[in-house]
Design a protein around this nucleic acid. Sequence first.
RNA 1: GCGGCGGUAGUUUAGUUGGUUAGAAUGCUGGCCUGUCACGCCGGAGGUCGCGAGUUCGAGUCUCGUCCGCCGCGCCA
Length: 583
Amino acid sequence: MRSHYCTQIDENDIGTEVTLCGWANSYRDHGGVIFIDLRDKSGLVQLVCDPVDSKEAHKVANEIRDEFVLIAKGKVRARGEGLENKNLKTGKIEVVVENLTVESKSEPLPFVINDPKVGEETRLKYRYLDLRKASSYETFRLRSKATIAARNILDANGFLEVETPILTKSTPEGARDYLVPSRVHGGEFYALPQSPQLFKQLLMVGGFDRYFQIAKCFRDEDLRADRQPEFTQIDLEMSFAGQEDVIKVSEDMLKAVFSACGISINIPFNRIPYHEAMEKYGSDKPDLRYDLAMVDVIDIFARCENEIFSNIAKNSHINRIKALKVPNGDNIFSKRQMKGFEDYVRKFGASGLGYFQLKEDGLKGPLAKFFSDADLEEIIKATDLKVGDVVFFGAGEKKLVLDYMGRFRIYLAELMEIIPDDVFEFVWVMDFPMFEVEDGRVKALHHPFTMPKDLDKENVEDIESIAYDIVLNGVELGGGSVRIHKPDIQEAVFKLLGISDEEAEEKFGFLVEALKYGAPPHAGLAFGLDRLMMLITKRSSIRDVIAFPKTQSAQCLLTQAPSPVANDQLRELSIRVRENKKA
RNA sequence: GCGGCGGUAGUUUAGUUGGUUAGAAUGCUGGCCUGUCACGCCGGAGGUCGCGAGUUCGAGUCUCGUCCGCCGCGCCA
């Protein structure tokens, strides 16, 4: 239909006959001449409808309103002296319309496209209108470029793109499943995959050697700004490969993806062991765009005269006393703010938050009287304090202290606005523990198919795994591991997880059996594509990079899904709804 | 499941101590206008104050419940 996109024409096309298609972005009727800004995916160009040029076109133009769909034929003309619009890419020219067709009319819109003040709720209800704005198009253009770049580089590296089932087996070990009732097998259910994990391992057993997939995954858990119930992973797996092979491929892929989005990044990325990340930053996904690392001061506190602290310090295996230095904090924060910090950490289970300020005449603060002068000096040395600095202390059970001090670190960085927003700080977090014990229950930190380094440790929590996460600016971008390819190790891990033989057989029997028929050593990784695009496009919400996202209560404002279904439909599926809360 | 914030014309919002006809901008609409580009000028329409109950002579305003949206906690092998 069209000869050009709106912004494809410029001064070189003056005198050329063009046909343009798009939407009326705005119209300005001067009684005689009518101006229309025509918009397509490329941008805007001004149409001029003058009765002198075409009475017919001017008559049609008279009826046009915002967002009518138009096909305009006309000649490109230079704008007169002083009539240029510098804000428009096509501001030096205009199209004199000779023939104008209204292809679709439009009701007045529920909101003005591109108005930054319009709330998200309204925009999501009419998502197709919100997508008309230039920034939306740019977001999804980049997303497309990114996935194509990922496909190309993985293809070039010998990876095979394979689709795995969307209707699959429920494995409620991890997140809650979305269930799909079976009509043919009344009372039985498929589940939507939380990830293609088991199938990609089976593809390795199948000899495909290298697999990838841009895979939709589903988890029925509560939403967050960076979490949707359905999301996309770039999922990959390699045979006869280990951690270093996966890391190399991943770094190459990320470099290609960022490059496709016009961003240059440096590889290889830094690495940090899990335990170091936890001890220094209180997080397994540390944001390393800023410092604020924690220092261990439990030895110094062991000698203090405050019983609370010295008692905590007695058991340095299960407890921690961490110092977090804030350079110049004494001059940045008011007394009132310092008090507020304690309230902040209390929300995460802290019983208090100690602090010292280094003044001209030494360390000051409520705790100072419990320490000898020598130990005060030790604190200054351990945390490398300068006059004007503040140092905060968290003390208590290890996991608790690391958690709330880690959150406090982020809270402070945001408050002080020291986080650069133009930096991409990647880090591999390495050597994750295999297990974690919660309320006496042993859980897999990654998943039960992760290769442990050594199962013969006395304490299961000391068993490490060959697992690695890729973290970007404090966001978990992806995670992977070397997988178990030997049935006896897999069975041993199930046993440690407290999964009985019968249960393991029922849930994962097909995997264990597959491992018995010659499984190659294999390893892989999965990236969260949505989060990746969120970071690349610098958005604060994952919804911005998903074409049709759901709200925090997992509803689609556009389609009103989920919604009740007719009884006939339920009967066919052998389902009876117990109660209808919403009716 | 829990905590915080919010819901008033189509949209973005103002609304004082509970008190006259809920105000503005923008959008919409009618008219005028041949060089605008957020066009301009004159006029007009448009409100279940999220919903339901309660207190009160009187509720947008106070109380309770409920729904929806956002942020977070739990949850997310």
